[in-house]
């Protein structure tokens, strides 16, 4: 797994986000969601600042953060490979998809590739069971996958990135 480099957090940004929700204590989950949207994860510094603004003790902030599986304390890859491992996908071979990604990118579930391009994230159910096995990347759903199709998808995303970098 790659060494993680943390981002710099700006107090003003945090205050702005909290204000959007009128500094309400009850909106802490939504505030953290906004923070994550901005930074891609919830940096430790941001967590503390939110606590200070909303006047919530650190222990409680940490408790909320760690309770929900969608909050991340470490930076994550550009593409999150959400491989569905729900019931219908499970009986149609979702395990093979996960294995293929592990083998192809040398990462375990929850880890990032060294170049920070991919993160493997098995998820419980994406609700498109009729198209099992399926995966979702950047909000786009891919149905009726196979191990081979998974690999082509990874290659395609890699190529797109290279192409983007060239044009920049």
């Amino acid at each position: 797994m790659a060494e993680t480099k943390h981002v710099e957090v700006d107090l003003e940004d945090i205050e702005k986000i909290c204000e959007e929700f009128e500094n309400r204590e009850g909106a802490v989950v939504q505030v953290l969601q906004k923070v994550q949207e901005k930074y891609g994860y919830v940096p430790g510094e941001a967590l503390e600042l939110v606590g200070e603004v909303l006047e919530i003790p650190k222990s409680k902030m940490y408790g909320v953060l760690t309770f929900y599986s969608q909050f991340y304390q470490e930076p994550r890859g550009k593409f999150i490979l959400k491989v569905c491992v729900g019931t219908a996908c499970h009986v149609r071979g979702a395990g093979l998809l996960v294995d293929k990604v592990r083998e192809e990118l040398h990462i375990e579930p929850g880890e990032n590739t060294e170049d920070m391009l991919f993160t493997l994230e098995p998820v419980a159910c994406l609700g498109s069971c009729a198209l099992a096995p399926m995966a979702m990347v950047s909000g786009t759903a891919y149905g009726k996958l196979s191990a081979d199709k998974m690999v082509s998808l990874i290659r395609q995303l890699e190529e797109e990135t290279v192409h983007e970098e060239e044009t920049v």
């Binding site: 019931t87 499970h90 159910c125 609700g127 069971c129």
Partner: peptide
Amino acid sequence: DEGDPGAFMDR
């Protein structure tokens, strides 16, 4: 919060 794996009626 339709969380059951294998269910997508509410979605």
